[in-house]
Write a protein that binds this DNA or RNA. Structure first.
Length: 569
DNA sequence: AAGCCCCAG
DNA sequence: CATTCTGGGGCTT
């Protein structure tokens, strides 16, 4: 094994990370809304399936995404609550997020019910005068415990303090919001998340370095590792390996041939228990959308009605958010007998003037305008002159116009040395016209290239040949061809240069690179945001070599990797 | 910028 | 597998 991507082992344990997961989140929210549901088996229903359930229902064997009929067979007295509108869950989710934020600036949301918290600074502060009692469970597997890994870098004390902080946060969430949670405490995100689910519900668990190897070995396959999804797993399985030790023992260069260098490094590191990815503060979402699946929509007027309903609900969410969106995305899922129900999306920019001074509803004129745009996008996807069969419609607003927008941050404008970013932002803002006319949608027909795998039945050994052709493509793309474009390189260099000039002190006032006179004039919340931005930038840059720009199978978009590997269909 | 893919709960 | 209803991010074009 090569360790070329590993950082200083002392730094590997330097952070204290907590992962908090709300127990059966939707069910708890429904019980808070209606306490009568507290002591009955409860399932949350979306369309024909139970998406989650409380622990009473789980005792009957009810599982996530089980058909309603199946669930009723297992538990005839199952009570169902409709959870198709996520509004209440979204609201509770942000309350939880706000509560946690009082303990650290760095809180990262994952879905509606999970949060990562970097409490490194808090833990170090508390080291001075706290006892090191561990609260909650400690992950232990005495046979697997590796005393060579006993660490004296101070992580034991920090993680112990971490258990106290986690306990305090969970207590706070319970008393303020009435929700029970689980927590995992360790020195990186992956380990914190994984270990938290070893004791459920309403418990917490800490993982120390000497137990990491044993813990990882206890996982039955690499599929359990967050970041290794279905596709990656299926690809690695074609090598005849699937457990963590098997991946670690497999020759790295062979893995690289299949997966590319970056992805391989990431996967191998995760298998070792090494995850440098920083806890990124979650700000406002980058998109706000709604979708509704349905049995069968085949008339244009039905489509219009559905979109209108979605739009009214969506506008409320956008109004609550406060920012003004500049692009609109339409999603359509067509009925497809060859099972792959993939969604098709089309997007276009919308004039921001539609949203100027609106509160929670649009003017009728603006609504008509947007519906017209929606239908234009829809016609790009569906030819209404031919019979059609739609099973899902969705709308989503993105690219928000706001001074506190994640990408177009104030901080990036103020950082004198990150000029490239600032220039592109300005260009973007100028390109937004006040023209109310509907954007031109070209008449170009969407010719869908049907890449069905039906010919595989003809081939004697389709699997092998497909894998080989995949290998061939991989090899082509692995070497000189995939160097970044010159323009990308220049931006990257500029970024790096600007980062080098930032020193590493934990100063909480004006960050380096920002004009102090300008900074001092700003309101305190904006100052805070700039400081947070700066911190996030620092964290990402220090781990850039491993975590940046890694998509697993970047190079073969067209036919997904599975097309080469999975043919038995 | 648009379209496609992968990942997460 | 996806199924629900979302959200994030990366790459190619």
């Amino acid at each position: 094994m090569d360790h070329e991507n590993f950082e200083n082992p002392m730094e590997e344990h330097s952070r204290t990370i907590i992962h908090i997961d709300i127990d059966c989140f939707y069910a708890q929210v429904e019980i808070l809304k209606n306490p009568n549901l507290k002591n009955v088996p409860l399932g949350i229903q979306q369309k024909n399936i139970v998406v989650t359930s409380n622990y009473i229902a789980r005792e009957y064997g009810i599982k996530k995404c089980m058909q309603i009929v199946e669930a009723k067979k297992l538990c005839p007295e199952l009570v169902l609550a409709n959870g198709e509108d996520l509004k209440d869950y979204r609201e509770m989710s942000s309350k939880v997020h706000e509560t946690i934020r009082k303990y650290s600036q760095a809180v990262e949301k994952l879905g509606l019910d999970e949060n990562f918290i970097d409490v490194s600074i808090l833990a170090k502060e508390k080291l001075v005068n706290e006892k090191f009692d561990i609260i909650g469970n400690k992950y232990e597997n005495l046979e697997q415990e590796n005393m060579n890994e006993l660490c004296y870098c101070g992580c034991r004390q920090r993680l112990s303090i971490g258990t106290q902080i986690a306990n305090e946060i969970r207590q706070k969430i319970f008393t303020d919001l009435g929700l029970t949670t689980c927590a995992g405490i360790s020195y990186n995100k992956m380990l914190a998340k994984l270990v938290g689910s070893t004791h459920k519900p309403n418990q917490q668990t800490v993982l120390f370095p000497e137990n990491v190897q044993g813990f990882l070995r206890s996982l039955k396959s690499i599929r359990s590792i967050p970041g290794i999804g279905y596709k990656t797993y299926e690809v690695i399985k074609t090598l005849g390996i699937q457990t963590i030790p098997e991946v670690l023992d497999y020759p790295t260069d062979k893995l690289q041939e299949l997966l590319g260098k970056e992805s391989t490094a990431k996967i191998v590191n995760l298998c070792r228990g090494y995850d440098p990815s920083p806890v990124k503060s979650s700000g406002k979402p980058l998109s706000i959308g709604l979708e509704d699946s349905c049995r069968n929509i085949n008339g244009k007027s039905e489509v219009e009605i559905k979109f209108k309903q979605l739009l009214t609900r969506l506008i409320e969410l956008v109004a609550k958010d406060g920012r003004i969106p500049t692009t609109l995305k339409v999603t359509v899922r067509k009925f497809d007998k060859s099972q792959t129900s993939h969604r098709e999306q089309k997007q276009t920019s919308i004039p921001p003037s539609i949203f100027t001074n609106f509160t929670s509803t649009l003017t009728e004129k603006s609504e008509k305008k947007i519906l017209l745009i929606i239908m234009k996008l829809f016609h790009k996807i569906v030819d209404v002159n031919k019979p059609f069969h739609i099973t899902l419609l969705g709308l989503s607003f993105t690219k928000f116009l706001d001074r506190l927008n994640n990408k177009n941050t104030i901080a990036s404008f103020l950082m004198k040395n990150v000029t490239v970013q600032a220039v592109t932002n300005l260009q973007n803002n100028e390109s937004i016209t006040m023209d109310d006319s509907v954007p031109d949608t070209s008449l170009r027909r969407t010719n869908i290239i049907e890449t069905d795998g039906s010919e595989s039945e003809v081939e004697p050994s389709p699997k092998k040949s497909k894998i080989e052709s995949f290998f061939a493509k991989r090899r082509c793309l692995s070497s000189p061809m995939d160097s970044p474009s010159p323009s990308k390189l220049r931006v990257a260099e500029l970024r790096l240069n600007s980062m080098e000039r930032i020193n590493e002190n934990e100063v909480l006032d004006c960050p380096p690179g920002v004009d102090p006179t300008v900074f001092s004039e700003l309101p305190s919340d904006v100052q805070q945001e700039i400081v947070n931005d700066w911190k996030n930038n620092q964290q990402t840059s220090s781990s850039a070599s491993v975590s940046r720009s890694q998509s697993n199978f970047s190079k073969n978009n067209k036919n997904s990797i599975l097309n080469y590997l999975i043919t038995d269909k």
